[in-house]
């Protein structure tokens, strides 16, 4: 089946779970990544069970720091 991951079209095996996709994509710090499928958040505990469907649009949203540390230290 075909899905879109971070804007890129990919051919993946049918029934792929979000957990499997996270492994396949080598997602950095997977336990702290926010996942959305078709503009809905998918909670961490649901990722291993939830299978993707043909045409799904998946986004990974990462924590990103940066800036100045002279604040609230």
């Amino acid at each position: 089946m075909k899905i879109t991951v971070a804007g890129v079209n990919k051919e993946v095996k049918d029934g792929l779970t979000i957990g499997e996709l996270i492994q396949q994509e080598n997602v950095e710090t997977p336990e702290y990544v926010t996942v959305s499928v078709n503009e809905e958040f998918v909670d961490g505990q649901d990722r291993n069970e939830k299978s993707l469907k043909d045409g799904d649009v998946v986004e990974f949203l990462y924590f990103m720091g940066g800036g100045s540390h002279g604040f609230n230290r």
């Binding site: 924590f63 720091g65 940066g66 800036g67 100045s68 540390h69 604040f71 609230n72």
Partner: peptide
């Protein structure tokens, strides 16, 4: 404008 570098600050 949030120009902080750490997550506690960003959530604050």
């Amino acid at each position: 404008l949030d120009g902080t570098d750490n997550f506690p600050a960003k959530f604050l």
